[in-house]
C-alpha cells in the first residue's frame, strides 16, 4: 500500500494537515509553501478541507496524548490508498519534546509513515522538494 500511494499522486497531491503538538513552526512553513515564492499549487499540491478528499495527511508535533484519538480518527476517515507524512523533527521522533507524561515520540508510534521531512522546522523549499520527490518528480 505504501508504494501504491506514491503511484497515485504523480500528478496531484491533496493534503490534510493535523497538528499533534507542534510549536506552530511547521504550520508556518507549510503555509508558506502555498505563498508566492514557492507556490505549491503549481506542482499540483494543495490543502483540502476534509480527510475524505486527502491523498495524505501531514502530521506535525510529537503526537501529544490529547491528539492521539483525533489523529486516529482523521486517518480512519481517509479513503485508500492513503499516505502519512511526518512533517518536522517532532513528528519524526518527538525531538526535544519526546519526554513527559503528555507528549509522544512521533507519528510512527501510531501510524505507518510514508515520508519524513526533517527540520526544526523544515523550510518551505525543503518541504516542497520532499513532496515533489514523493510524487516521483
Amino acid at each position: 500500500m505504501d508504494d501504491h500511494i506514491r503511484s497515485t499522486v504523480r500528478r496531484s497531491l491533496q493534503l490534510r494537515h493535523v497538528d499533534c503538538g507542534s510549536c506552530n513552526g511547521c504550520e508556518s512553513e507549510l503555509a508558506l509553501v502555498f505563498s508566492p515564492r514557492y507556490d505549491g499549487q503549481r506542482h499540483g499540491i494543495d490543502m483540502v478541507a476534509s480527510p475524505r478528499h486527502a491523498d495524505a495527511i501531514t502530521v506535525s508535533g510529537p503526537v501529544t496524548v490529547q491528539m492521539q484519538a483525533a489523529l486516529a480518527r482523521t486517518y480512519d476517515a481517509m479513503g485508500q490508498p492513503r499516505g502519512v507524512i511526518a512533517l518536522g523533527d517532532c513528528a519524526i521522533d518527538g525531538h526535544v519534546h519526546a519526554s513527559g507524561y503528555a507528549s509522544g515520540t512521533g507519528v510512527q508510534s501510531q501510524l505507518p509513515v510514508d515520508l519524513k521531512i526533517p527540520g526544526c522546522p523544515p523550510p518551505p523549499d525543503a518541504i516542497l522538494r520532499a513532496l515533489t520527490s514523493f510524487m516521483g518528480r
Binding site: 499533534c20 503538538g21 508535533g61 491528539m67 519534546h97 513527559g100 503528555a102 507528549s103
Partner: peptide, 8 residues
C-alpha cells in the same frame, strides 16, 4: 490539545 507537559 497541544499540551506537551513541557514544564514538567
Amino acid at each position: 490539545w497541544n499540551h506537551r507537559g513541557i514544564e514538567a
